[in-house]
Design a protein around this nucleic acid. Structure first.
Lengths: 251, 251
DNA sequence: CGACGTCTTGAAGTTCATCAATCTAAGTGG
DNA sequence: CCACTTAGATTGATGAACTTCAAGACGTCG
């Protein structure tokens, strides 16, 4: 199932972008906003479980997530899947395909998602016309790199329990930063299969590991997802501290 | 041991940069070359085993590797180390520290290394003055992301034998692309400890896994390093195909 | 020469994968 | 409304993959 662009029922103008109002994103200048507004081609609605971008495709677009949860992943020929990272509002996806020849990973929606669609062919003019936006793209790419580095450290060197705790703490952190979670909303819409494929563990062992965290009342599984009860406790097990919370760019 | 900038015995001008002559790098315009030449602050010589960049530091510089092999890594408090990626001539390191607050990983030299030193504070003017170079930086960051994605897939979902084969094939490929290796030079200056810390395995198990590859005459250990005998055989075990070989940017 | 770093090997124990069920909640169709 | 189906969570048993411990071999270097 591949997500199809739909006639946009309520197409949001960049000028009243709900994300842009959030304080964690860098404010745009008038000119930047104008440029991005005409850089935007439309919107993509993706249903849960649909594929937004496919590995190997030469996508003519890149996207910024406006709402919902998704994930990036790769699969081996025999079907083994590795989830590389999760995407939340404010994240850009498909930059890789815009810069390289073709996409090296796929993106799937976990919940209903709305994405802003940009034209790949006009990416270079963004660098030409607005150095600040070009810098922001590099910033975003560098931040993704930081996250992947942490995942590698986790999968490579942490025990199963530490790994699971790290991932939970990480997802909670990202959700809060993206405005998806807070003190009262602590529900992450993932399945244990997603966890297994992120942690590099089997589904059975993942379940047994997560059970230990449930028993200690750090998390709870309900409503097809995971509820974070004690983020601090998870961070303590993982030995992980969230990154800096400074204002970040967003295109 | 941290590498110290030394008085440059033979400081290479960008105009006669040996790397720039290589066909795999995108050629610069006259203006770009001029800009980069005055962007360059000097050179750093690093001895084998010395640390070029330290996690947590706020580096005032970023670097392009001119010669030698190195690697990026992170460590947990208790000393567990994860090697994230390897660096070869043409690679940029420290971009993260230039873009974020501080470095999130360290970089160590495996052989003697020469690095071009750039001023972090002037990075933004690169975007302002030369959109093409700004685009190149994003390109480089996106490529690093592609590599890290592949490493994650490998550590998370491949068996030890596949993982080791993938890493060997990957390093061979990178060495060839950087002009460090070819048909006659097949020696990669890594120890089995480096391998273990990259693959997320213990040193003992790594040794036993590599032994199987030696027995099949795909590789051979000698002279404190690994000799690649059969890259194609390694790729076959890993189920890996090298990425595209198009001209890449280099700053 | 002795110290050290690196590679190698065997044995014992732990972690994790696989197989095979079972259980639950949430649809779906009659 | 209830039987049926399905996705996801859970559990125990068995064996394979991997770690840890321990020791030894080999070459390099001061």
């Amino acid at each position: 199932m591949v997500a199809e662009p739909r006639p946009n029922p309520v197409r949001v103008s960049c000028y009243e972008c709900p994300l842009r109002r959030m304080k964690q994103f860098r404010p745009f200048s008038e000119e930047e906003l104008e440029f991005v507004a005409q850089f935007k081609r439309g919107e993509l609605q993706a249903d849960p479980g649909t594929t937004v971008l496919v590995e190997g495709a030469r996508s003519a677009h890149l996207y910024t997530v406006l709402s919902g949860w998704g994930f990036r992943y790769k699969i081996l020929e025999d079907g083994r899947r590795q989830i590389l990272n999760y995407v939340v509002p404010g994240d850009m996806v498909g930059l890789q395909g815009a810069v390289m020849a073709e996409m090296q990973h796929s993106v799937e929606a976990m919940t209903a998602m709305t994405l802003c669609v940009f034209e790949r062919s006009r990416l270079f003019s963004l660098f030409e016309r607005h150095a600040g936006l070009g810098f922001d793209l590099t910033w975003l790419a560098a931040r993704e790199e930081v996250i992947l580095d942490e995942h590698l450290l986790s999968i490579g060197r942490r025990s199963a329990l530490e790994r699971a705790s790290y991932l939970l703490a990480f997802l909670y952190d990202r959700g809060v930063l993206a405005g998806l979670l807070d003190e009262n909303r602590r529900h992450i819409p993932v399945t244990q299969t997603h966890f297994a494929d992120t942690l590099g563990l089997s589904i059975v062992h993942t379940n047994k590991t997560l059970k230990k965290l449930s028993d200690r009342e750090l998390i709870r599984w309900r409503d097809r997802g995971c509820e974070i009860l004690d983020p601090e406790g998870l961070r303590a097990i993982a030995g992980w501290v969230p990154g800096d919370l400074r204002i970040r760019p967003f295109i």
